[in-house]
Design a protein around this nucleic acid. Sequence first.
DNA 1: TAGCTCAGTTGGTTAGAGCAGCTGACTCTT
DNA 2: AAGAGTCAGCTGCTCTAACCAACTGAGCTA
Lengths: 237, 237
Amino acid sequence: MAARDLQERIKKLIIDRRLASGAPLPTEPELMEYLGASRNSVREALKALQAMGIVEIRHGFGTYVGPMSLAPMIEGLAFRTVAGHYRGEDSLLQLLELREAVETGLVSRLAGRLPEADLVELDALVDRMEEQTARGDGLAETDRAFHATLYRGLDNVLLCEVLEAFWDAFHRVRTDLGGEPQDPKVTCRQHREILDAVRSGDSMRAEEAIREHFGNIRARLSTTAPHGPHTRHNERV
Amino acid sequence: MAARDLQERIKKLIIDRRLASGAPLPTEPELMEYLGASRNSVREALKALQAMGIVEIRHGFGTYVGPMSLAPMIEGLAFRTVAGHYRGEDSLLQLLELREAVETGLVSRLAGRLPEADLVELDALVDRMEEQTARGDGLAETDRAFHATLYRGLDNVLLCEVLEAFWDAFHRVRTDLGGEPQDPKVTCRQHREILDAVRSGDSMRAEEAIREHFGNIRARLSTTAPHGPHTRHNERV
DNA sequence: TAGCTCAGTTGGTTAGAGCAGCTGACTCTT
DNA sequence: AAGAGTCAGCTGCTCTAACCAACTGAGCTA
């Protein structure tokens, strides 16, 4: 009865005092007095809030208002997907389709509307991808940056964060499950095509480019079928 | 050091044992022994997992694998939006724009592709909206059902859940902040228009209908300016 | 047989003690 | 006097032990 209340009251405290991310919260003893609860209950409430990213706890230093990022959502999505996968569902495919559905819808809206600065930046990112391909490096981070930069043009921070969260969740699950890596050359070409299409302002072509990109990922995905009874050794779940 | 580990180990336990939603987890004493930790630490880990929706705790009954819904995401999004709002950001508008951006992209994809059964159901929902308007009732739940049913045609459970989560977060924040209610008649007409457009198979018209619908909500929103908390502060530094 | 009661199980809460990480002021050396 | 090492004090972390509260199911009562 009290536990749920404590969380709410701490949240209320943050709202009422207009605390921004990074602002210090009362210490545990202070919260005990303020909330009229035992240390344990206070800590359990804080742990729950920490899991939601609302609060950040630093050992030996203090408790602070969290970054309010979508990290907990990534965590939850990733776990849900992994759990579903091992239970024989096509949860990873669903996650990919979610990204595809959302991104195809968005890319057609920004075709031809991206400021030159962003286009230049995207050019540089694809160039870097090609360098990394030549060197045989992984291009996960660059891929992430490409998608992030692309949708920055929509001018909605929240939307961008959500898309990045989807990317993160998908990427994390795929690596955890040890799926087959993409063919880097194909990936490069497809990103170049997406960029060209967006630059040209042809919505349909941009949509098609995104769809083809995801189609490629999907093809590689189908080889990652749900399998065996035991998880891999150092799997992050 | 141990705390983060406990969560991971409990998650791993769920994965390894292929536990589905609703399956019972070991009791607290059993987990204490299995994890080699004190009751307190186990409980804090469970509380964190509960906050993420991975675990469900029922007093006097037991601990179970959670529904893995996106409820925690709604919670986090809503709090983040409310906190931002009170601190003078246009976070609620951003949330609305997120919904608009995603839904306009999606609705054009399902224009003309919805099975007749869904269309009939949507018809019934709009009819119900009109009844509720005539009776002066609120039509929040019906609105939610309309959007949910609409995107069910995309045949991606995860995608639907995400959209519903966005709807829930937005709705919850708006009511929490006491924003002005919509004009029910306008809302009805716009939903009818969306449905007609989708049925006709005209993607552009469907997109436009969605955009107009959100434009209406947005107009009402601008009257909900950030303002003070209705609660008094506790003056402890 | 229907309903009640009570013991046993499960999670919820409190209390107090000691451990561990970080900071800043103090002291000792150079 | 300036720099480096030390230590006291804050902070959160973990453990133990006891009792409270919700639920279940067996057994008793009517």
